[in-house]
């Protein structure tokens, strides 16, 4: 395999995913209803460089998990392309896809649902090894499983146990060991710590950072927790109703958010330092994704909305420091660059 010198590992260009959530045909005829299409992801583009962590944040229903699933190939995109290491996944043949699949893995949110309860841990971790024919002899498999278990902070003896014998944090370690077993370069992590307690979350985040340093891993990290995101990511993408509204460096996005929605999220973070800062609760809620607002989807909640926002959908435009933001108000410089208070 010829390695491209390009620094970009994954490029996602204008992907979309639509779900048909219509009622059955007969109901539609009787109740005279149209087909209902839910646009879970509607034109999202981003790139991830080797060795970095890109996080996608947003509230429930913004499409962040759908993006993770699209990138992993668990859903077929309705539109757009996913380019992994210069290979377009849609054009690649079955063999090539199989080769590529070895190089990325996924960690899921719920460590109770993502491990087969009837398999022993050793078998769970060895599955990718056997599927991708990385290790064939039993001795080789066992040796690799033992090593993986040690790497994630468990004991080789744990290979004989069943998932129910472990706590949530330990199970998430097993998920990570399984994801690492095919020596991937790229991990898609869908809310890996949301089901865990804070002290266990700290253990898992530390482990993920250690593994990233050791193996040069690249992460796509999905989370709704901004504090976790600010801790783990290199860059952050903020999603709202199926669209990216802002992408920027972690430091930049938290110190100086541009998009009104990002500003709102940032001010909604609970203040642990007790500086007496009041959280600015923003009125309103995420609209129904079946009937998204016209123009900029955020305009009904946005303090800076004006006519153009209601009719024309903003696209991501570059601003200084390599950030991107999709907002007419920022583009027209109606929002001044906010200095962190």
């Amino acid at each position: 395999m010829i390695k491209k010198s390009s620094n970009v590992l994954l490029e996602v260009i204008d992907i979309a995913k639509e779900f048909d959530v219509s009622k059955p045909w007969l109901n539609r005829v009787i109740e005279r209803q149209e087909r209902q299409i839910l646009k879970a992801v509607d034109g999202v583009s981003f790139t991830i460089n080797r060795g970095e962590t890109l996080s996608l944040v947003g509230e429930s229903g913004c499409g962040k998990s759908t993006v993770a699933r699209l990138v992993c190939g668990l859903y077929k995109p309705s539109r757009g392309s996913i380019i992994f290491d210069s290979v377009n996944m849609a054009d690649a043949g079955a063999d090539e896809v199989q080769q590529l699949r070895k190089r990325f893995q996924m960690i899921f949110q719920d460590p109770y649902a993502s491990l087969n309860p009837r398999w022993r841990v050793g078998k769970i971790i060895a599955e990718p090894l056997r599927v991708h024919k990385i290790a064939t002899s039993n001795a080789d498999v066992k040796q690799r499983v033992d090593k993986l278990l040690t790497q994630v902070g468990l004991s080789p003896l744990d290979a004989e146990k069943f998932p129910h014998e472990f706590s949530g944090g330990q199970r998430q370690r097993i998920s990570i060991a399984r994801a690492l077993s095919s020596n991937p370069e790229f991990l898609v992590c869908d809310e890996p710590t949301s089901a865990l307690d804070v002290s266990v979350q700290a253990q898992i985040l530390n482990l993920m950072k250690d593994l990233q340093r050791e193996f040069g891993l690249t992460y796509l990290f999905i989370s709704h927790n901004l504090a976790v995101v600010s801790h783990i990511s290199t860059r952050v993408g903020v999603m709202y109703l199926g669209r990216l509204v802002e992408v920027a460096d972690t430091k930049r996005i938290f110190a100086n958010p541009q998009h009104p929605y990002t500003q709102m999220l940032q001010s909604a973070i609970p203040d642990l330092k007790m500086t007496g800062k009041q959280r600015t609760p923003v009125a309103g809620e995420v609209p129904n994704p079946l009937t998204p607002p016209t123009g900029c989807a955020f305009h009904p909640r946005c303090p800076h909305a004006f006519e153009r926002c209601k009719t024309e959908r903003p696209n991501l435009i570059d601003y200084e420091d390599g950030g991107q933001v999709a907002c007419h108000a920022v583009e027209e410089k109606r929002i001044n660059i906010r200095v962190a208070a």
Binding site: D197, N206, A227, H231
Partner: peptide
């Protein structure tokens, strides 16, 4: 330990304090 384990925005710590083991 618990306070150190909570990530917070703007902290430049490479690692979070962690309490080993579980309850």
């Amino acid at each position: 330990g618990l306070m150190g384990a909570i990530p917070s925005v703007g902290d430049a710590h490479e690692r979070l304090a962690q309490i080993d083991g579980s309850m």
